[in-house]
């Protein structure tokens, strides 16, 4: 790969293949921890760290791990790195550790990470996998920041915990609660649909294709059609 394509491995995650807005993966933390920028950035960076480490290790072991047990192996590796990040944050960033609470441990089951392990790291060389992890992690962080910016500014009248004049006295309180999370996420996905339509690409839909469990889903009789498939393209 030349230098350009290496760069594109990193940057594709930012917008073109943004894991949240285009691939629609990792919806749970996207709604749960984006009530403020502090939580969003720390969650994004924690997940990025896990993603880079797990991608690296899985890529290094890609020829050793038998196909049959690859998902359990990936999960153990990811859970290990999540615990590592948890311990380090508990020790050195206790406030953020308290803030993220259970969602930190739940990075383990964030489908972005398992998805990248399955889709990319297990098929590519270590350096590329690290770059992919970095790009996807930062893309995830960017998405969380977008969500948190809207919710914190209009929901709390603050930005990074600092009061904004006027808005502070005119907050839309429900944006900081879970319904607000669903709403803002829905609106941002709609925006992403508009952009995709302009570029002549299919609209984002729930990340079944990227999900390592897609095969199981289909065998369960849940088709892509069930997975919130947009009808926009058919009109």
């Amino acid at each position: 790969m030349d230098k350009n394509s290496k760069l594109s491995v990193v940057t594709k995650g930012f917008l073109k293949e943004n894991p949240v807005f285009v691939l629609v993966l990792g919806t749970c933390p996207t709604i749960a921890v984006t009530t403020g920028l502090v939580g969003a950035v720390s969650m994004g960076l924690a997940a990025t760290a896990v993603l880079i480490c797990s991608n690296l290790v899985i890529s290094l072991l890609r020829n050793i791990i038998p196909d049959k047990v690859r998902i359990p192996c990936f999960i153990v590796i990811i859970a290990g790195f999540v615990t590592l990040v948890q311990m380090l944050m508990h020790a050195y960033l206790p406030d953020l550790y308290e803030l993220l609470g259970i969602y930190l441990a739940l990075i383990t089951v964030n489908c972005i990470i398992l998805g990248r392990a399955e889709m990319f790291a297990s098929k590519n060389r270590p350096l590329d996998s690290v770059l992919d992890g970095l790009g996807m992690g930062l893309g995830f962080t960017i998405a969380l920041i977008c969500m948190a910016l809207i919710r914190e500014v209009f929901g709390k009248g603050q930005i990074w915990g600092v009061d904004i004049p006027f808005l502070k006295d005119h907050t839309i309180g429900f944006l900081t609660k879970s319904p607000g999370g669903f709403l803002v996420f829905g609106l941002l996905i709609a925006l992403s649909t508009v952009i995709a339509a302009k570029q002549g690409k299919p609209a984002p839909k729930l990340g079944c294709a990227q999900c390592p469990q897609a095969g199981i889903c289909r065998s369960a009789g849940v088709t892509d059609d069930d997975c919130a498939k947009t009808e926009g393209g058919n009109d």
């Binding site: 072991l61 050793i64 791990i65 038998p66 047990v69 359990p72 192996c73 153990v76 590796i77 859970a79 290990g80 615990t83 590592l84 311990m87 380090l88 508990h90 020790a91 050195y92 206790p94």
Partner: peptide
């Protein structure tokens, strides 16, 4: 392979825990 991965990850965590536990 799965067992080895489990053991290595646990070992790694034990080492890091040794460092962070006193700080916590």
């Amino acid at each position: 392979v799965l067992s080895v991965i489990c053991l290595v990850m646990s070992g790694l965590l034990a080492v890091v825990n040794g460092i962070t536990a006193p700080v916590i």
